[in-house]
Amino acid sequence: MTTINVPTREDVTPANQQIFDQLKGKLGFVPNLYATLAHSEQALGSYLAFQNAKSSITGKAREVVNLAVSQVNECEYCLAAHTVIGGMVGFTPDQILEIRSGRASFDARLDALARLARDVTERRGHADPELVDAFLAAGWTQENLVDAIVVVGDKTVTNYLHATTRIPVDFPAAPELKPRRAAAE
Rank of each mutant, 00 (worst) to 15 (best):
D170E: 09
S56W: 09
N159H: 01
I85D: 04
L97H: 13
C78F: 00
Q142F: 08
P179T: 07
A68L: 11
A173R: 03
A117V: 11
F106S: 14
E76S: 14
D133H: 12
T121V: 10
R181L: 14
E63R: 10
L113S: 14
A163C: 05
H126N: 13
V120F: 12
A38T: 14
G86L: 00
V151A: 02
D107S: 14
R180E: 11
A183S: 13
E122Y: 06
K24S: 07
P168S: 12
K54G: 15
A80C: 05
H162S: 01
G59A: 03
R100C: 11
R181E: 13
V169D: 02
A174H: 09
Y77Q: 04
L27G: 00
V150W: 08
V64K: 08
T3I: 07
I167W: 01
N159F: 02
T121C: 09
I99K: 11
S40Y: 08
A104C: 13
M1G: 15
A49W: 00
D133G: 03
Q71W: 08
E63N: 14
G45D: 02
Y77M: 04
A183C: 06
V84D: 02
R9W: 09
D128E: 11
N144A: 04
N73A: 04
R123E: 11
A148L: 14
L33F: 02
V64F: 06
N52H: 07
K26L: 15
P93Q: 09
Q17G: 03
A173P: 03
K60N: 13
K60L: 12
L33A: 04
P179A: 09
E63Q: 14
C78H: 00
K54F: 07
V150F: 10
A53N: 07
A108N: 14
A134P: 04
T158G: 00
A134I: 01
S46A: 15
Y160T: 00
P129F: 13
F91W: 01
P93W: 04
G90D: 06
S56F: 07
A80Q: 06
R180C: 12
G90Y: 00
M1D: 11
V65K: 02
F171N: 02
A68K: 05
A134W: 00
V151F: 04
G28I: 15
I19T: 03
A182T: 12
K178L: 13
N16H: 10
D133I: 11
A38W: 15
G125F: 01
N5D: 13
F171L: 06
A117I: 11
D11G: 00
D154P: 02
A183L: 10
A61C: 07
A183K: 13
R123S: 13
N16M: 08
V69P: 04
T141I: 07
I57D: 00
R103E: 13
V120P: 11
G125P: 12
K26V: 12
F29C: 01
V152D: 01
Q18P: 09
H162W: 07
V151C: 01
Y47G: 05
K26M: 15
E98A: 12
N73K: 06
E76Q: 14
V157P: 06
V169E: 03
N144E: 06
N52Y: 04
T36M: 09
I149F: 08
A15T: 13
